[in-house]
Design a protein around this nucleic acid. Structure first.
Lengths: 177, 177
DNA sequence: GGACGTGGAGAACGTGCGTTCTCCAGCACA
DNA sequence: TGTGCTGGAGAACGCACGTTCTCCACGTCC
């Protein structure tokens, strides 16, 4: 197994475990076991756990936004499609809310790289919405709805939060679009 | 010092520390030091850390909602006042987002009492908004805005998220109120 | 005054975990 | 065949922390 395949496997395992159970609840040994990569190799790829966490967040950001972008693009870049994508996401088995919000809660004072990854993700999503929607103010309003729906769906376990947010978004788009 | 004063001091210290740094980052010894209550007494009042965490959340829920309720009531129970209160909260030094969302992120699989306290808080806030706003659907939409603004203000550090949400709320209230 | 219960200070214990170290099997190469 | 290198398995180390235990000072009742 070469080094890039090892990092791939590690990131795959890390994402599954960190997202499902929280970063702090998962030890390096669990990542090793799940990935099948030895501990020695693990520390060659990621010198410390923080590095693995940061890489996990950055990779998840890329994949998450790509999935959203493609879904929405396939629907003619209709801003409301964002909420359709959310509905699917919330209904997935194993949905546990936004990995970045969860990580923000998990680390009182995150390591600089981790804090940066969290902020970057939100900045990127905001930028995406601003590109999708004419009117920066309107885009930011929809962004708040997206975040609120995600948090509430995670805590209450009700995927219907996506529809609530979607209806609000529709009103906002109609009134201000 | 009698037992009720000890629990008060403990809860005060726990809230300060848990909210500021996260629950996991704070050891029982830090709570002891800050409260001035001996470890023995601490474990008499709260047999395990989980019990202290749960009590912290339940107390914070009561105080948080009381503060919001009174602020809004003093402004004629205007639903938009909710967002004025948020703006004040976000601008407070030491604001670190919603303690319940943070705790949800912190514990992958929370102890049952803690999970219940988190869910209860959101249920209570939702119920409060539904009482404040005619139209359950509209109240739920505003609830999503509240949660989204809180999360974004915490992560970006920008208290202006309250105004963004407020403007959205105004449009929703006008269109559907 | 002397036995006794109460409560505090802090040591001690057990465990989990991030990180490093030890040891060895397998292999390339002379 | 002997020699060194690579990488894996897993033990070991150090530390943090939840929880319990030890010891002792102090006040209370016979």
């Amino acid at each position: 197994m070469n080094s890039t395949e090892a990092t791939d496997r590690l990131l795959e395992a890390a994402e599954d475990l960190f997202y499902a159970h929280g970063v702090q609840a998962i030890g390096m040994d669990a990542v090793r076991e799940r990935s099948g990569v030895s501990l020695k190799r693990l520390y060659q790829c990621f010198p410390a756990k923080n590095d693995l966490v940061e890489a996990y967040l950055r990779r998840r950001d890329e994949r998450w936004r790509k999935s959203l972008r493609e879904f929405v693009h396939a629907r003619g870049d209709d801003p409301l499609a964002v909420f359709g994508w959310l509905a699917n996401w919330f209904a997935e088995p194993g949905f546990r809310g936004c990995a970045f919000i969860n990580s923000f809660g998990e680390f009182g004072e995150p390591a600089p790289g981790i804090a940066a990854a969290i902020r970057l993700h939100k900045d990127e999503v905001r930028a995406y919405l601003r590109g999708l929607i004419s009117g920066q103010r309107l885009a930011d309003q929809l962004f708040a709805l997206v975040e609120g729906a995600t948090v509430l769906a995670a805590i209450t376990g009700d995927p219907g939060e996506a529809n609530t947010a979607r209806e609000a978004a529709k009103v906002l788009l109609t009134a201000q679009g």
